[in-house]
Design a protein around this nucleic acid. Structure first.
Lengths: 345, 345
DNA sequence: ACCTACCATGAATGCGCTTACAGCGCCTGG
DNA sequence: CCAGGCGCTGTAAGCGCATTCATGGTAGGT
């Protein structure tokens, strides 16, 4: 900057103004500065600017690592892994750009999440955290210095902004569809581990729909599992091995389990949806690939990212506004696995 | 930091050392500092650190915007848009984290790409650029101050590190498969616009395979099109409306066109692969969703991102090493559209 | 012709940190 | 017993920029 100022015959203050508030510099002077900058290959230092202006122009996103960082880049595991983070990243990037911010992303490494978040926090004006990525205490401390918004999952710290999706309502609507439109009444629900607030909310939605329809309501999920494909498969077998009449439909707390169950049912020669209907929750791309295509509840992850940016921007503008908690609507995707006609591609 | 130093009864230099080189501080002192930091909710400033240390610990990625930022978040257009950028981002993030860097991403806005790259450049230690995202002249200037690696596409500036995929070899191998394994000899190639170096390289690979097999070699692609679905569909119709015997197989320079062609052929009642085989290039997820599933050449986009980070890290370590140009291997994905048995999910 | 208001610019300060460099106390070998 | 070395810490000088305040010049008002 000093060199540019020299070459243009102005002071560094003027060079700064050319970039910060072009309008306040005479156009002739401005052109001279710009020309000098180009000639010298001047690239303004973000660090210096950040230090002097006390703001970085960057928003951040911390998310759990979606996969083993040392995993092979095998052709096979391409889309399956396209999990939420990618969509959230996309949504945030887009919204951030619209707002004039860049986006800094960092997955939490198994090694030291504490460091991770400190690294990010020091470089951004505010950031979003996917649930359970960062220890609550770290967040507690950091959120005293800059805006943080929690994404999905429970609102661990109540003075933070928070966005979640309509787990309860989505599962209720899906259940209503199974009962009301398909006439299924022997329903089984496969939940997640009891500590997962999302899975619990979904179960409550399921219960409510059952109650409303006068269908027998279980106090607990029929099975609890770890929300992976393998566990879903196991859960399906367990459910069908139980004595008595098998369920007419199995609702899984997420898509991964439902896909596993599809495999299990195929192994047993049980037809889906003719013998048993299967549904999931999330709307992962894999759900469209499997046959029958998986009926599920789609979470608007991209929008989640966009709303996160909006919340951050708003809080930056009004730091002591009341904390906000948004609930984003979800969409029931009726596909073949519940008995609906498969919409051909 | 001053407050932390005060509270711990040390100088700010010692506080700094606690974070930069913990080993050089007596452990008792270190604990005192850490305790004070925690009590005060100290979050080190990335800007200040960056300014003082002349390095940011951040790598960047500039890519073209994959979609209209104002597009609806409709459930339908979910996976189709899962383009390269997401996979590259994923690869870079993972590799960067392994190397101790964070990742800053920014899509080029139609508005001002020039600004964009300057914004990014000032905040990072080095960055990767997807081909044709940034005007060459801007890159020229910026690459004088910090490492830049060009991703995919031609090597526009020859003193930059550069990574591309094996367009030529991949298309050659795919063509050999069609000729050698399936016995097709009437082949048509639908290329991109002449300015696309990727598409041209693919065409050359096609030609070479034809020559080697003694199959008639066209000097130019049978059709040139814009590499979109709509154009692919148009191209397929055009090809089949030509007088004379229709081709036994059509090779498209990318998946998008091939998918469009699949629709066109369905419209005409032409069976794929029985009447005509179809192939693409890229390995987009949509290619697995369509029926018949699209035989194609898969680009290792995630690895592209990882290699980009490695190159940046290496150049940071050895700024005046010779520029490197990597060619990543691709994988032929044999699916149903060429006549191979469809691997069931 | 003089004062005020305003515009364009320069001088100077400090943002929060890293990093020589220097200093202090202590230990070692000669 | 002293020179030299080592381990730990403090001092101080910036890093490259934004920004406040002061300054000179110019136009408008009276």
């Amino acid at each position: 900057m000093y060199d540019v100022a020299d070459r243009a015959g102005v002071s560094i203050a003027t060079v700064s103004r050319v970039y910060r508030s072009p309008g306040s510099v005479r156009s002739e002077t401005r052109d001279r500065v710009l020309k000098a900058a180009r000639a010298l290959g001047y690239v303004p230092s973000g660090s210096a600017r950040g230090l002097a202006s006390r703001s970085t122009g960057v928003l951040g996103l911390c998310f759990p690592d979606y996969a083993d960082p040392d995993a092979e880049d095998s052709p096979a595991n391409g889309d399956e892994e396209m999990l939420y983070s990618d969509e959230i990243i996309r949504g945030m990037e887009r919204a951030a750009r619209r707002r004039g911010y860049a986006l800094l992303i960092a997955a939490s490494l198994a090694g030291g999440p504490e460091n991770l978040v400190a690294e990010v926090a020091g470089r951004v004006d505010g950031f979003a955290v996917l649930a359970r990525t960062v220890p609550t205490e770290s967040l507690e401390v950091i959120s005293r210095r800059l805006p943080v918004v929690m994404l999905a999952g429970p609102r661990e710290i109540d003075h933070l902004d928070h966005i979640e999706v309509a787990n309860h309502d989505g599962q209720r609507e899906l259940t209503r569809h199974l009962i009301g439109d398909h006439g299924y009444r022997r329903l089984a629900f496969v939940g997640g581990e009891a500590v997962s607030p999302d899975a619990e909310a979904r179960f409550r939605g399921f219960r409510q729909a059952c109650e409303e329809a006068g269908v027998e309501v279980p106090g607990q999920p029929d099975v609890r599992a770890e929300m992976t494909q393998a566990e879903g498969r196991r859960a399906a077998h367990a459910l069908l091995d139980r004595p008595g009449e098998p369920p007419r439909a199995i609702l899984f707390a997420n898509d991964q389990m439902a896909v596993g169950a599809l495999h299990a049912l195929e192994e047993r020669g049980t037809r889906v949806p003719d013998d048993i209907a299967v549904t999931g929750f999330d709307g992962i791309p894999l759900g469209r690939l499997v046959r029958p295509a998986l009926t599920t509840v789609r979470q608007p992850m991209r929008r989640l990212g966009e709303e996160a940016v909006e919340l951050l921007v708003q809080r930056l503008a009004a730091p002591k506004r009341e904390p906000v908690s948004l609930v984003l609507p979800v969409t029931v995707m009726r596909r073949a696995s519940c008995g609906c006609p498969d919409p051909q591609l």
